[in-house]
């Protein structure tokens, strides 16, 4: 049967919508993935969407549109009609555009959340032979050897910069920051010894941690994580971080603001139900992402809190271009 997907039949198979006519969705939906093929956003979206399609009774054609820290895809979605036929499948980045000077829009002001699906857990990892095993030891080491530790980073506004800003808000981080163009290449460099320490999202580092090619220095969360047995949350030694946590990058599906409520509701129901599928839950579990499963006002509140914490962190760290005050983002 599967072989039939080739050739002419595949053409027909792809366009069969199977839905009742003249009712949303009455044609193919375009899904714009904000990040490149093979990345975490891509994997999450391509895994959940087939399940959502089943509930929705329609076809979602996904395509990657990268560039401009995700701004190109977001801007494209904003130029399309607010009819629910263009979905933005993105990560947290647009919530920082305003303060980073990358654009005058975000998910809450210009989009309608369909579903917030999952969030990642930030951790601090180091090469296995580094002379420190806990965050406390690292802080002491940095105090004794200023600027000697090589910290991996991925440019202002990226996860490592935010985590570093958060850590720096409570203790003194004196290190040399070596920039990489993504957490994948940086984690590779960590295993090769080109850098010493790297803030990363747990899912991306998990397999290398299990194989003991890198070690966890800190779990930047307020609760222990079952994927990291025996690693206490950072708040145990440094309760000061409690006010920022839990914090993490998130993935969600969005439509342009102004999309009819019943369409958004139908999409939300489809994606939230699709996210319950066993293999999707398992995928999140394997990659150590925590399910969020929020929609509507709850999703907006979640993102507003995220934006307030993060914007002020990057602003206070001096890497933001504009003050959150300019956009009425309250200090947490």
């Amino acid at each position: 049967m599967k072989l039939k997907l080739f050739g002419a039949v595949s053409a027909a198979a792809l366009v069969i919508a199977g839905a009742a006519f003249a009712e949303y969705p009455e044609k193919e939906i375009q899904g714009i993935i904000q990040w490149g093929a093979g990345g975490s956003t891509d994997a999450v979206m391509r895994a959940v969407t087939p399940h959502a399609e089943e509930v929705l009774g329609g076809k979602v054609v996904m395509q990657n549109m990268t560039g401009g820290v995700g701004a190109i895809a977001a801007k494209f979605t904003m130029t399309q009609k607010a009819d629910g036929y263009t979905l933005l499948m993105g990560a947290e980045n647009p919530m920082l555009y305003k303060v980073m000077g990358l654009g005058n829009f975000d998910y809450n002001s210009d989009f309608e959340p369909v579903a917030l699906l999952a969030r990642g857990v930030p951790i601090l990892v180091a090469r296995p032979d580094a002379p420190y095993n806990t965050f406390k030891e690292l802080v002491d080491y940095m105090a004794a050897n200023p600027e000697e530790v090589k910290f991996g980073s991925t440019g202002p506004g990226g996860l490592p910069s935010v985590v570093t800003a958060m850590l720096d808000a409570e203790v003194d981080i004196s290190a040399t920051f070596v920039p990489y163009d993504g957490d994948g290449p940086a984690l590779t460099a960590l295993q090769g010894g080109a850098i010493d320490v790297m803030p990363a999202v747990l899912g991306a580092a998990l397999e290398a941690i299990k194989a003991e090619r890198i070690k966890v220095i800190a779990l930047v969360d307020s609760t222990p994580n079952e994927a990291l047995p025996g690693i206490p949350p950072i708040t145990e030694d440094f309760p000061g971080y409690g006010k920022y946590l839990p914090w993490g990058p998130f993935f969600g599906v969005f439509v342009k603001a102004g999309t009819p409520d019943d369409v958004v509701a139908k999409l939300s129901a489809a994606y939230l139900e699709g996210a319950q599928a066993t293999d999707f839950v398992e995928l999140l579990h394997n990659r150590a992402y925590l399910p969020i499963n929020l929609s509507g006002a709850e999703a907006k509140d979640y993102m507003a809190k995220w934006q307030s914490v993060t914007s002020w962190l990057v602003y206070d760290a001096g890497i933001a271009k504009k003050s959150p005050e300019d956009f009425d983002i309250p200090r947490p």
């Binding site: 093929a37 093979g38 990345g39 891509d42 994997a43 391509r46 895994a47 994948g184 998990l206 397999e207 290398a208 299990k210 194989a211 090619r213 293999d279 398992e282 995928l283 394997n286 990659r287």
Partner: peptide
């Protein structure tokens, strides 16, 4: 770039590509 996508596909299919694979 192709192996990057194949890694993504393996995740979706429930495998964990990494040093432990």
């Amino acid at each position: 770039s192709v192996t990057a996508i194949i890694i993504g596909a393996m995740f979706i299919h429930g495998l964990n590509p990494g040093p432990m694979l």
